[in-house]
Design a protein around this nucleic acid. Structure first.
Length: 853
DNA sequence: GATCTGCATGTTTTT
DNA sequence: AAAACATGCAGATCA
């Protein structure tokens, strides 16, 4: 961060008049700051007469005469009467100057066009708003509205929203603005591209776009404070947002129809209601009520009222002015000094970006609700300012206990750290509990990666998981950092409610559900739409839908939803790794469906049928038995039976009694689920699972096989491992394989013979034949070498097993089932290494020959 | 062997 | 192309 230059920024009061200000430093005050005056101010003259706040944060120092004029509200009348920017108040007809920093808070842009003097504006709007608030208190809808509008506002207006952590001398109006908000990238345009005049006017509009709502602190701030503050930052805001492109986007989102049609620098189009109402959602509590705190423009002539209204933007401005002590002489001079303006803006930026206090990505914009704010602020008189939020990634929510902080957010809102070790950061959670995290960074690609370490306990206490959102707020005046959270499901509910209430442009849940046909997706689509609106991204829907669906799978709540994020930033969309996981989950979900057929009621229990979303599910009072129906059989050998089943219950002890699988069924639930997952994978891809040769644990490769099992599968080494069997090998495996091949070939011969007999002239359709034979290769002979084992336990009762296989094969042929074709408990783990059918036949023949020999 | 720590890497988003 | 960020990974440390 560069150190502030000694030369103060000086903001001109001659914006409309086009006169360059006196370059005198107000702090030294040798010359009246009024460009039209330039009267010498005697050193040490007391009391000092001050005017508006400059962007440097200092106050314009005026000579007595100008100061008096200024304080009486006649500054523009006196000095800018010939300048541009004069309009008439739509209500009282009073002449209002709209074109300079001095008059910046004396008027309000109207929704319908035109302007109102601040007195009328306050009368007509603010008081109504206040009365509404006071009458009803902050209801969620109101707050949300404010939030939404605020969002809109930021999208259209605020680039250089700077922090404003300045102290009011007496705390009279310790009102805070919202966070320093960035504009979405899509809305950005190089500041340098803008004419300075437009810039200043746009900024003017921005300033007036903020309307206060209320401030509960009785003691009004000294007018001059507010007044000067509101002048100090004009021109800091990146005006580019209001350039067509930006504005169009932002307005489109919220249905704003007004446009800035005014000639650059002079007059202004109406500001939308949304904009006008937009305020940073800040909550202020007093003894009796909670108030929204927004912004205000306080006219010089209305200091009392001004005192009752806070000015978020002024706060920001002040902060900015603290940060920026560059020279702003010409920023609003109206002089076409674009180059200088550029420099100024750049200076602002460079200084500000020293801590990256701007340009947060939209996905980090806090979307905190009033309830959350209330919860955070509790009963205190504190003012809670949402800073940013972040959706927890898998690694954030994981056990590693490191929460990756968005760089800009970290740099903007957390203490500056120069050492990677960082510093401990005390954070209070929504319950008032305090945590100490280590705020630090890692060097990363010539940059930094900020993390909050030690968050696991906090995350766990909040029961957060990936996809949930943590919010960071600041509680003033203590300056305490507050960490809130939002479960993903909550968001949807609230937003849906709001959407249903209407008026914010969001689709209702119903609509979305209808559109997507699935509630979970629908809600996510809601977000995706929001995101789309934000980013203009195209594919948000599908991606987010998917992840949301997955979340839905995970979460009991049907309304699981992802917080609004840009396209691809939701878990499962932004991150490919996560996405892959989620896609896996989807696959698992599918296999769960398929696995329905693998679930069987425990013996002596009848399942009850539950209908969920039109789908029938069997509900078991006891843990169901997992197994493939076709594979059920009695195990007479006492081991490794095809009838082995897996119970899902961890408590179940061989609930699948009849299988005789012994301890097989006594697997823990996790094992059962693992097995199910493995089955799913097998079923999906027909791939073999990674082999596990551990004899201590039941292998997942052969779920049906148990430790000690000596079946042909279990004694077979993992694919590619172990010695090859010679053709003359007389081991059990080889003998079994040969015997089975013999049987199979005989059966095949027999079948062919019968077919010949039955349909002599009919050529055998290859497909039909293949279909008929389809089951057999699966259960039958793998190709050598080494002869892959037949999956069944053929050692003890080979003949019987073969018959069972045969029957099973016929069943498969008769009842095509994805499960039966995809998930085969008898699947051969190394089947993927099977040679092609052609070579298969050759191998078969060779085997047969071997066997015959 | 589990966990912690610091960094590296790959992917996605932004400029 | 650069920046941001999620997460993998290897070495260190601990139980």
């Amino acid at each position: 961060m560069s150190s502030p230059p000694s030369q103060s920024a000086a903001t001109t009061a001659g914006g409309a008049a086009g006169a360059a200000p006196a370059p005198a430093s107000p702090s030294h005050g040798k010359i009246c700051f009024n460009a039209h005056c330039k009267e010498q101010i005697a050193e040490g003259s007391s009391p000092r007469r001050r005017g508006w706040r400059l962007r440097s944060g200092e106050l314009a120092e005026l000579c007595a005469r100008c100061a008096s004029t200024y304080e009486q509200g006649g500054f523009c009348d006196t000095f800018h009467s010939d300048g541009d920017g004069w309009r008439k108040c739509e209500s009282c007809g009073k002449r209002v100057h709209c074109g300079c920093i001095v008059s910046v808070d004396t008027f309000m842009l109207l929704d319908a066009g035109g302007v109102e003097c601040i007195a009328c504006a306050r009368k007509n709007f603010i008081t109504v708003r206040i009365s509404q608030l006071n009458a009803s208190g902050p209801v969620p809808g109101q707050w949300r509205q404010a939030s939404n509008m605020w969002k809109t506002f930021t999208q259209s207006d605020l680039q250089q929203r700077l922090s404003y952590e300045f102290d009011r001398p007496n705390g009279a109006d310790r009102l805070i603005s919202g966070p320093r908000l960035p504009i979405p990238s899509h809305s950005k345009k190089k500041v340098e591209d803008l004419p300075d005049k437009l810039s200043s006017h746009i900024n003017r509009v921005q300033l007036n776009g903020h309307i206060n709502v209320n401030n509960s602190f009785g003691s009004p701030p000294v007018f001059s404070d507010l007044h000067r503050e509101e002048r100090c930052v004009v021109g800091l805001h990146d005006p580019s947002h209001l350039v067509e492109e930006t504005d169009t986007v932002a307005r489109r989102e919220v249905g704003i129809s007004n446009t800035f049609s005014a000639p650059a620098g002079i007059s202004f189009g109406p500001l939308s209601n949304s904009n006008v109402n937009t305020s940073i959602p800040t909550i202020v509590k007093d003894e009796t009520s909670v108030h929204l705190v927004g912004l205000v423009s306080s006219p010089p002539s209305d200091s009392n009222n001004a005192g009752r209204i806070s000015s978020a933007h002024s706060l920001r401005q002040t902060h900015a002015s603290h940060l920026v002590k560059q020279s702003f002489h010409n920023a609003h001079s109206g002089v076409d000094s674009s180059g200088e303006a550029q420099t100024q803006v750049r200076n602002v930026r460079s200084r500000v970006e020293g801590r990256c206090r701007n340009q947060l990505l939209p996905r980090y914009w806090p979307r905190i609700t009033d309830q959350e704010l209330q919860q955070i602020s509790g009963d205190s008189n504190s003012v809670v300012t949402p800073l940013f939020e972040k959706m927890l990634s898998a690694s954030d929510a994981g056990r590693i206990g490191r929460l990756v902080l968005p760089k800009k957010c970290a740099e903007a809102y957390f203490p500056a750290i120069s050492q990677p070790e960082g510093l401990p950061l005390k954070v209070q959670d929504a319950n008032g509990q305090e945590w100490v995290f280590q705020f630090r960074f890692w060097p990363n690609n010539n940059s930094r990666m900020y993390v909050l370490e030690g968050v696991t306990p906090c995350i766990q206490s909040m029961k957060l998981q990936a996809g949930d959102t943590v919010t960071f707020s600041r509680m003033d005046p203590e300056g305490k950092l507050v960490m809130g959270f939002r479960k993903a499901s909550n968001v949807s509910n609230e937003q849906d409610i709001q959407a249903i209430k209407g008026g914010n442009g969001y689709p209702t849940t119903k609509e979305v559900t209808h559109r997507n046909g699935r509630s979970g997706e629908g809600i996510s689509a809601l977000h995706s739409r929001t995101l789309k609106g934000n980013s203009g991204s195209k594919n948000a829907c599908s991606k987010v839908d998917k992840s949301a669906f997955i979340q839905n799978e995970r979460t009991p709540s049907k309304s699981y939803v992802l917080p609004p994020k840009r396209k691809g930033t939701a878990p499962g969309s932004k991150n490919k790794r996560l996405r892959i996981e989620n896609e896996d989950s989807i696959e698992l979900k599918l296999t769960w469906e398929e696995a329905q057929e693998l679930l069987h009621p425990p013996p002596n229990h009848k399942p009850s049928i539950v209908v969920i979303e039109g789908h029938e599910f069997e509900e078991y009072e006891e843990a169901p038995v997992l197994g493939k129906p076709a594979a059920f059989a009695t195990n007479e050998a006492g081991h490794c039976s095809s009838a082995s089943k897996i119970t899902i219950s961890g408590n179940s002890k061989g609930k699948g009694e009849s299988d005789g699988g012994g301890g097989a069924a006594a697997e823990g639930s996790s094992e059962g689920l693992d097995t199910l997952a493995n089955l799913a994978i097998l079923g999906e891809g027909g791939e073999s699972l990674p082999s596990s040769s551990s004899s201590q644990q039941p292998t997942t490769r052969h779920p049906r096989h148990r430790p000690g099992c000596t079946c042909i599968v279990c004694i077979q080494p993992p694919s590619g491992k172990g010695p090859k069997h010679k053709p003359s090998c007389q081991c059990n495996v080889c003998l079994t394989v040969k015997r089975r091949f013999r049987t199979l070939m005989l059966r095949k011969e027999k079948r062919q013979q019968s077919e010949k007999d039955g349909a002599d002239n009919k050529p055998d359709p290859p497909t039909a034949a293949a279909a008929q034979k389809a089951p057999e290769p699966q259960a039958a002979p793998p190709p050598p070498p080494p002869p892959p084992p037949p999956p069944e336990s053929v050692q003890a009762h080979p003949q019987k097993e073969e018959e069972e296989e045969d029957q099973a094969g016929r069943r498969k042929a008769a009842v095509p089932s994805p499960i039966k074709t995809q998930i085969d408990l008898n699947i051969q783990p190394d089947r993927e290494e099977e040679p092609s059918p052609v070579s298969d036949a050759g191998n078969l023949m060779r085997l047969l020959q071997d066997a015959a020999a």
